[in-house]
Structure formats: C-alpha cells, structure tokens
Nucleic acid binder design. Structure first.
Lengths: 218, 218
DNA sequence: TAGATTGTTAATCGATTAACAATC
DNA sequence: TAGATTGTTAATCGATTAACAATC
C-alpha cells in the first residue's frame, strides 16, 4: 500500500480515537472542549492534539477551545465516515458472525452485502438478515455488486486465496483477521488484525514485569 | 500501565511478528536466515531487525546469520511463551466463542478456565469443553483459581464493571475487545483491541486515496 | 584466506513536546 | 480589557537507518 499523503500513519491512527472520545462527549451533552481537557481524557498531550488537528485545519477558536459537535463532524468527514461502503464477509464462523452481528459498523456506513463460506450447510442461510453464499462465487459477486471492502475471517490456510479472489473482483481494501499476512497488488489497502500479536504483547509485558519485580527484591 | 524496562513498545510490538515469521520458516524447514532475508520477508530493514534482536542478546553469528530454530526459541522465551497463563473469557457471544474456539491461543499457553455470561440460557453449557458460568461469580472464580488474564468480550455497557471485577479478583492483565477503554489500577496490564479504529483507518485511507487520484486528474 | 554477515556506534530522520504570539 | 486557549514555530527526544569494524 503506497501512500502519497503527507499525513503520517501515527496521526491517522489517532483520528479514530479522537472520534470515539468526541462521540462520548457528544453523548454526554458536552458542548465545548479544550485541548487540555481532551488531553486528560485521551492521554495524549494537549500539544499533540492541537498538532494533529491542525494537520487538517483550524477547527478551534482561541480562548474558547473546540466545539464538540463541530469537531466530531469534521473528524467523521476526515475519516470518510460520511460515506457508504459495501462490504462482504468471507468466513461464516464465530468471528465472521461476530462482525456481521456488530451493528455499529453498519451504523458507521459499512454495509455487509453478503457472507461467503465453503460449508454447504451454511450456504443459503441468513445471518442478521445477510445471506451466506458459496465462496466459489466470491469474485463474481464482488465484481457485480461493486464491493468496496472484503473482510477475511477464514482460517489461515484459505486467506491468501480469498484475498486474491477479492482483489480480482476489484475491492479497494481488505480487512484481514486470518493469522497470516496476505499479499495483493500494492494499490489495495490491506489492514491486518493479528490478534495473537496483541496477546503475545500482553505475555511479554507480564514476563517483563515479573522480572522487574524480582529484580527489585534484591 | 507503568513500565520500567528500557525496551521501547515499538520494539516489543515487533517481537510477535518476528515470532510468527520464524514459525513459518521453521515449518518450511529453513535452518538459517540472515537479517537481509528476514528483511525481505518482514518488510522491516535488516538494520532494524539486528537492532531489535540485540536488545535481548547476540543471537546471530557473523558470516552465518541466525539459526532459525534457536532464534525462534529465544523469541518465544522473550515473549514468555514458555509459560502457562490461565484465562477467563467474559461474554459468550460470537466473539467470546471465536476466542474460546481458536485453539492456537491454547497451544501457545493461554488456557481458558471458564467463560462467563449473564444469559441464564447459556450458563451451564460448554463451549469447546469450557463451562459457561454466571458472571455474578466472576470475581470469586478469578480469586479462587488464580486467573492471570481476563478477556472481555462483552458489550460496551458492561466492560468497565467486568474490568473492575477482574481487577478485584486479582488478574494481572486484561485483554479488552469491548469498544471502549477500561480503566483499572495502574499495575494491571490492559491491552485494548478496538476493531472500529482499525476499520476507520481503512476508511481514512480509502478517502485519502480517492482525493489523491482526483488531484492527479487535473 | 576471502566472503559473508553480525553487533554496535554514529548519523539521520521523524515524531513529540515546549513555547509563545495571535486572537477570541 | 483580561483571561483563556488556539495555531504554529522551534527545540527536543526517540526511533530508524547507515556504516563499518569485528569475526565467524
């Protein structure tokens, strides 16, 4: 995935956090917020928050701070959450079902158009009102329905094959939950979610802490 | 989560990736690997790989490279994967079930001792041979069974309460999949997996790319 | 020995933080 | 006007990359 924009990924990955915290503030009917207050909530420094936001424009007002509703909307727009994306979920196991059933994504504009699986017993069923199709038809479905994002929830053994079918069908992005990297043409955005990496990080930190506390004893 | 170690989180988060790629090499019966070859596979620079590994010791040999089996084992040990951790999963929905059924975690030493849910229809059932308990008993179960890691797979509304029960029960770490941050005492390791942040990052990159390609046209 | 490749220091680059003038 | 807080530049910090002596 090549990028041309000057916005660093470090900034990009903080945007969804800002969005989430602003949603909370909005829900609590907070009308204005300063970078200092956002700092307290998010754990980022006030300076960093102002820097980040100013990558996209001056959304604040000196002496006042930021209007919560306005800033929330601006960040929604920056994140492209004012748009609708068509998705397919490949793999109707627990994880695939979890994603289909998690309505927040749909509310955010990511609309599942179909689920795909190899299991003939699942094909034809509906999960949260979305039909399960034969994975054989994945590529043509993606092509015919202008699918934007393919979500891979298959075992490791299938993920590369599925990624290639999605790519041939013409998706713009792949969200991959299989515990293996997939490789497709550079112009497709690939976001890997490797849960085991997250768990192993916990494991490392546990071990590290144990060593530190051991060392302290002596 | 305070840290005392000098190893930066940037390095720590690359360790599970090294581990994964080395597992692949091992599976393919590769016996030795150079930092240059690892660079090709992982996408990190050879220089960075050598720097990272040398945070923990000199595992290579000049003129030769690294022994795959040996390096894999070293990193397993650094990650604490030679240890056994007792876990509980809170929330027996699709996501909770996905985690219970994903045997790789168990093989890596993270052993589920129980599942917890509020739904009386699920309590008493077994999922992948693990019993579903009433979430009322979470704290005492954690205390009585010396649980190390609590895995939160509940809706947002429940996650803070659950985190507090886990903390009181004495877990050392919390792996949180609920779409909200949980706050507990600083000496508990908290790893948040916010799937929506990952999806929103895709959304941002899609929008960014569209803008770049639009700009190119003129 | 010659070639390869590490381990490690130094240089560079980028991201974060600090500071403060601008201004609401 | 005085106080607050942004937007933005400059300083600092940390992470990555380059270079090369050590050595297998």
């Amino acid at each position: 995935m090549e990028r041309f924009s000057s916005i660093s990924m470090a900034v990009v990955r903080r945007l969804p956090k800002y969005h989430r915290y602003l949603s909370e503030l909005k829900k609590n009917d907070v009308k204005r917020v300063s970078s200092q207050e956002l700092s307290r909530i998010t754990g980022f420094t006030a300076s960093q928050i102002r820097q980040d936001l100013n990558c996209f424009g001056g959304f604040g007002q000196q002496g006042y701070g930021y209007n919560v509703d306005d800033l929330h909307q601006q960040i929604s727009k920056i994140l492209g959450l004012d748009k609708i994306y068509k998705t397919v979920i490949v793999g109707a196991g627990n994880l695939g079902q979890a994603i289909v059933n998690y309505t927040f994504f749909e509310k955010s504009g990511f609309i599942p158009q179909a689920i795909f699986d190899v299991n003939p017993r699942l094909i034809g069923l509906k999960i949260n009102d979305i039909k399960v199709h034969d994975v054989e038809n994945l590529e043509s479905f993606v092509k015919d329905n202008g699918i934007d994002i393919g979500i891979i929830c298959t075992p490791k053994s299938q993920c590369q094959k599925v990624a290639e079918a999605l790519a041939k069908g013409g998706v713009q992005a792949i969200w991959n939950f299989a515990p293996s990297d997939v490789s497709v043409h550079d112009d497709i955005i690939v976001e890997n979610v490797h849960l085991s990496e997250s768990l192993f990080t916990i494991s490392y930190l546990l071990k590290e802490r144990e060593e530190v506390s051991k060392a302290k004893k002596y």
